[in-house]
Design a protein around this nucleic acid. Structure first.
Length: 802
DNA sequence: CCGCACTTTTTTTTT
DNA sequence: AAAAGTGCGG
């Protein structure tokens, strides 16, 4: 007997609960939950906050709660809203839920903030005066749109950099502010605000929305349209929020609209059961507006009476957990939480200091070989983590040379590759010719004789006529006009050709007749690009198969909402701007394009093979592995240079380190390199302060610990081979891997001594804090008045004693 | 208009 | 080191 919850055919009241009541007869769902987890899963319908430590079964609690609510008939599938940050987390939740219940989860409102807001906007685009064909700008697109406007306004390159303007606009949106709401502190600020306003006009004209706009528009939809808000409020009786510590102001405000209303400055909850799950120690997205304070605000504004701490860790062995606990204690103002484990003591954390980044990578390869060979771990249970994407290169090279299969997450994702973006631009222009960003991207790609001059003429014509570039093409005279006309004709022909075709065929037509495929086939060294384009065909095909034409994803709310709005509108005397949304569904093409923008293609390549996993620490959040390497633990890298200035930023780096440590189940390796190629230069970094913040009794130094007698390092597996390979850096005779902080500054130090006042071309005046090594290896730690402290190689940097 | 070579800038993390 | 921007000859 299988229950099929097809939301389309089952409006909320028609849902029939299974006869079992979990309250009198404990359902198998609830077995093997610990008391705290059980309490969290079976909370009553009221606002609650779960403080869920790393590895405490957070996702399990969330999915089990949804399953429990559904199976006890407290709510139907349409009455649940569950929101996460990453597509990965959303997918995980759907998969687990589907495993718990015989349920068609596809139509449920479980997804990322951006995904769900997008769904809402599609359903109400008429009401919002959005074209039904609106497309989503990713960061790249957004930047190029900004650059275009920047140029058009002839702004000063020095005073307003496009990147800065992009950052400014996104920051405003994260705070929920439109241009007119941003306080203008000074002239500079006023210019930025004006730019923000013009950028918004441009986006509206072109029918495109950036990431922040998805959230902001959705927020405004709920704020300004009572019937819509009331509809969703009635509908979503249970709202579950994952990673609550990483919500920004706007996301929190959005949630408040779904669960209450403002009376003046006072928030009045409407009684929806909002379950916020989070961990303040794992807040690592402040740089994009995350606000830990939302947790405290939530407790206050929703009048939360139920707070549950999940402190039992089911993932890591004791040494690992102890290290994480001690590290995070260095942060101030935590909510406070101490994880415990019963997974056994386990092995100490292994710390390795390599002479160079190259040697570090080779040591890691040796250790990975042992783990996957002698220790029998599957390769995908081994993760190599780093602070920034650029660090993956050395590791990749070493793994490649050793013939070990690996998989890199993040970095350049599938849908972000240039050739794919070109193809997508053509696809977008089929439905939305007003998309100037896309048009400019492919106007002359492949090259068809439309140069900078022609583009200028076209832009001038468009501005004069106040229309899109596409529509302005016919107004350009002469030779340029002819080639522009030809391009527009090509697009029109393509559109004609694709009428009524299936998605795969549409993509095929575009690749063929845009000339993209031919262009890359003719180019040398472009075989990978051709393969990627062919992969795009597969992606389109499998998208149609998996998503069921992408229909469910968007179609679900329409009928219901239309009814709700129609009813409300009728009662309110049918104001003209409150027309109910049409019931049209998203075309497969539009669904696919949205999918490409929102999911960026989680690096689908080579997913079949068992491979070592490489990713940034950010990307690793929410994942776990038997063995984890945290690499590049150096001052300037991790913690990152840009964070060293403020205490807040430094604490975020520490939380990042906390996240990294708590990914590991059994084995944790920590490594750093004395020298590293960075931005094309060899740089010297002292080891990360985080290493010194870990409890010594949990650590095993595979290379001499500073202050320890050289050569007495314990457990030296993998030590010799790494040192034997340190070709890049000559060792100081007799003392391999010399401790980086206690070297005597005796011989040739280029006339630089500790305590000296010095001058540097770029950094200006500074004071020498320490000098290490000698000859070509000599380096100085200098505290510059204007630029803070830096390590400089004396053989390279020109330091003048003052 | 195109392609090539040269110069300059940029590098944290991401939905 | 890599990418993006600039300038020049064909």
């Amino acid at each position: 007997m299988i229950h099929r919850f097809a939301p389309e055919s089952a409006p909320s009241p028609a849902y029939t609960p299974s006869p079992t009541s979990a309250l009198d007869q404990p359902s198998p769902l609830l077995q093997s939950l610990n008391p705290e987890q059980l309490a969290a899963v079976t909370l009553g319908p009221e606002p609650a906050l779960i403080l869920a430590g790393a590895g405490s079964g957070k996702t399990r609690v969330l999915t089990t709660r949804i399953a429990w609510l559904l199976s006890t008939g407290q709510v139907g599938p349409a009455g649940v809203l569950a929101v996460t940050f990453t597509n990965k987390a959303a997918k995980e939740m759907l998969t687990r839920l589907a495993a718990l219940l015989p349920l068609n989860v596809r139509g449920m409102w479980i997804g990322t903030f951006h995904g769900l807001c997008h769904r809402m906007l599609r359903a109400h685009c008429k009401l919002l005066n959005l074209p039904a064909t609106f497309q989503i700008l990713d960061m790249q697109d957004q930047l190029s749109a900004i650059k275009r406007l920047h140029k058009q306004l002839a702004l000063d390159e020095e005073r307003f950099k496009p990147k800065e303007l992009q950052w400014f606009i996104n920051a405003c949106k994260e705070e929920g502010q439109r241009a007119h709401q941003v306080p203008a502190r000074d002239a500079e600020q006023r210019h930025k605000i004006e730019f923000y306003r013009l950028y918004e006009e441009q986006c509206q004209r072109e029918g495109v929305l950036d990431f922040g706009e998805l959230l902001l528009r959705s927020f405004e939809l709920l704020r300004d349209h009572d019937p819509v808000r009331e509809h969703y409020q009635r509908r979503f009786r249970h709202i579950l929020v994952d990673e609550f510590q990483d919500t920004n102001r706007l996301q929190y405000a959005w949630l408040k609209l779904l669960a209450g209303r403002m009376e003046g400055n006072q928030f009045v909850p409407a009684g929806n059961a909002v379950l916020a799950v989070g961990d303040d120690d794992q807040s690592i997205y402040a740089f994009r507006g995350a606000r830990v304070g939302n947790m405290a605000d939530f407790v206050r504004e929703f009048g939360v009476r139920q707070q549950i701490k999940l402190e039992q860790n089911y993932r890591s062995q004791a040494h690992i957990l102890e290290a994480a606990n001690r590290l995070i204690e260095h942060n101030q103002g935590r909510l406070g939480k101490n994880l415990r484990t019963d997974q056994g003591t386990g092995e100490p954390l292994r710390v390795y200091e390599a002479p160079s980044d190259y040697a570090e990578a080779n040591w890691i390869v040796d250790e990975v070989r042992q783990l996957t060979g002698r220790d029998g771990l599957p390769a995908h249970q081994v993760a190599l983590l780093y602070r920034s994407n650029a660090q993956s290169r050395v590791l990749e090279t070493a793994l490649f040379n050793a013939g070990l299969p690996y998989r890199v997450y993040g970095g350049l994702r599938f849908f972000e590759r240039a050739e794919i973006k070109h193809a997508l631009a053509y696809l977008r222009l089929l439905d939305n010719p007003a998309d100037d960003t896309s048009l400019l991207r492919v106007l002359n790609f492949p090259p068809r004789g439309i140069g900078a001059r022609s583009v200028e003429a076209l832009q001038a014509a468009a501005q004069a006529a106040g229309c899109s570039l596409h529509d302005a093409a016919s107004a350009v005279p002469g030779r340029a006009g002819a080639s522009l006309g030809a391009f527009v004709a090509l697009l029109d022909a393509l559109r004609e050709r694709c009428q009524g075709l299936a998605l795969r065929q549409i993509v095929e037509q575009v690749l063929q007749h845009s000339g993209l495929l031919a262009h890359y086939r003719a180019e040398r060294d472009a075989s990978e690009r051709v393969e990627n384009l062919e992969e795009l065909l597969n992606a389109a095909e499998s998208f149609v198969m998996q998503e069921g034409f992408g229909r469910d994803a968007v179609a679900l709310p329409l009928d219901e909402t239309a009814a709700a709005e129609a009813g409300a509108a009728a009662n309110a005397g049918n104001p003209p701007d409150e027309e109910p949304p049409s019931g049209e569904t998203l075309s497969p093409l539009q669904a696919f394009l949205s999918h490409a923008a929102l999911e960026a293609g989680d690096n689908q390549a080579q997913s079949g093979q068992d491979a070592v996993q490489l990713m940034t620490v950010h990307a690793a959040k929410g994942l776990e592995f038997d063995a984890v390497f945290i690499t590049g633990l150096e001052e300037g890298l991790f913690p990152h240079d840009n964070a060293s200035s403020s205490a807040q930023a430094l604490e975020e780096e520490r939380r990042l380190m906390y996240v990294a440590i708590t990914r590991a189940r059994q084995r944790l390796y920590l490594s750093h390199a004395q020298t590293r190629m960075l931005h094309g230069q060899t740089r010297y970094h002292p080891r990360s302060r985080f290493l010194d913040e870990l409890p010594p009794q949990c650590l095993q130094w595979l290379s001499p610990k500073p202050g320890a007698v050289a050569g007495l390092a314990r457990g030296s597996t993998g030590l010799q081979p790494a040192w034997g390979r340190s070709a890049l850096v000559p060792e100081v005779p007799g003392v391999p891997g010399l401790p980086s902080r206690s070297a005597p500054a005796t011989a040739d130090t280029h006339g630089i001594r500790s305590g000296m006042a010095v001058f540097h071309q770029k950094f200006g005046q500074g004071k020498v804090l320490a000098v290490e090594g000698r000859g070509d290896d000599a380096r100085a730690h200098v505290n510059f008045t204007r630029h803070g402290s830096k390590w400089l190689a004396l053989a390279v940097a020109k330091l003048t004693p003052l």
